[in-house]
Design a protein around this nucleic acid. Structure first.
Lengths: 209, 209
DNA sequence: CCTACCGATCGGTAGG
DNA sequence: CCTACCGATCGGTAGG
């Protein structure tokens, strides 16, 4: 039996639940996540799992938040020691590729944001709103990185940072899908070639320095 | 009562079911599709719906097939009267954009292939296999269009058709998501700018004519 | 194509 | 954190 746990233990249990929920949701989606499945996998009762969140919706939101923290740690922070400008932008993109290729135990079903975005983009409610908010945040940070690279003179002054961020997200989704659907070992190289083209001669025809 | 219908009537009923299943699945996914929901929406009994397919999995496969037919009709055939080469490739891309923007009643939740691909890419089974097969088919046709444009001299001879097809799918996914998640009216223009860059100076640094 | 039904599982609650 | 339980819904079947 294991009633009466300390606050620290309860917190640790919650973390374990979220960690596993991220893995399950990356495969089956945030809607495919079920309390019963989580409880069985973790050797707990359903009420024990649900008690940490109250409702399934809260669990979904906590799962998204957890995935966002992993993303920040794996993709963003890892590039922050690079020099601002194209080097740091490139480092973010490289970390992004590595994150999809190597974080297979955290996200066995691929990037949870991609899954959640497609799953909820046609619905309404708090989960959809949270997904949209996270997307906006990361898109803005990406556009900021591009803007810095333009200011540094690493990219042509006519570059539209929002446009580049938009295309980067598309490349990223294609990459995630190529890995998941076809397990194509050439996918990373494909993505790097597209990035080179995007950064090497972006906007040369519509603006120019 | 409505037992005993003619073969033609039964076929028409099946078509009605598939048509509605496509709309529901584009919002809730192929797994979110339920027999009971379809039956209620169509004013039928669950057994009446299921009788046309046998199992939910068969219904999912029929839904995918139906969506593939719509895609072929709306995107592909519409461009076939154009001149082979860049004009026809461009027409396919334009039809693709129009398809996402205007086919809102057929696909209220956006492109069903994108939804199904993300939903099943980490699973196994006949539905996942069908999704992967459809993706391969459309990717190959897209690459063929690019190859023809290269042969016509409309694109540089160093162009890698598979690479262009890969990037096109990414742009398309970004576009679909931008419409669904943010209802951004600038999304189509963003996509056209990306296409112009892709077709205008593709591969100039890695091959060349 | 229907009614009537099956066991399993869903999210969630009561009470401890 | 547990056991025991709730009504609702799931995919699917029997029989007509």
């Amino acid at each position: 039996m294991s009633p009466r746990k300390s606050v620290a233990e309860a917190r640790r249990t919650r973390e374990r639940i979220v960690e596993h929920a991220i893995a399950v949701a990356s495969v089956d989606g945030l809607e495919g996540l079920t309390i019963g499945r989580l409880a069985m996998d973790l050797g707990m009762s359903k009420a024990g799992v649900l008690g940490h969140f109250g409702t399934k919706e809260s669990l979904q939101l906590a799962t998204l938040e957890g995935a966002s923290a992993v993303f920040a740690r794996t993709v963003w922070e890892r590039a922050q020691h690079e020099q601002p400008g194209l080097p740091r932008l490139q480092a973010v993109c490289d970390a992004w590729i590595a994150y999809i290729e190597t974080e297979r135990e955290v996200f066995p079903g691929g990037c949870l944001f991609t899954t959640a975005a497609v799953e909820f983009d046609a619905r309404s409610g708090p989960v959809r709103d949270a997904v949209a908010r996270l997307y906006r945040v990361w898109r803005r940070r990406l556009a900021d990185e591009v803007r810095i690279a333009v200011d540094c003179g690493d990219l042509p002054s006519g570059t539209d940072p929002e446009q580049v961020a938009y295309e980067l997200v598309g490349l990223y989704m294609a990459f995630n899908q190529e890995i998941q659907l076809f397990a194509d070992p050439a996918a990373a190289e494909r993505t790097r070639r597209a990035l080179a083209r995007l950064f090497g001669q972006e906007q040369a025809s519509s603006g120019g320095s």
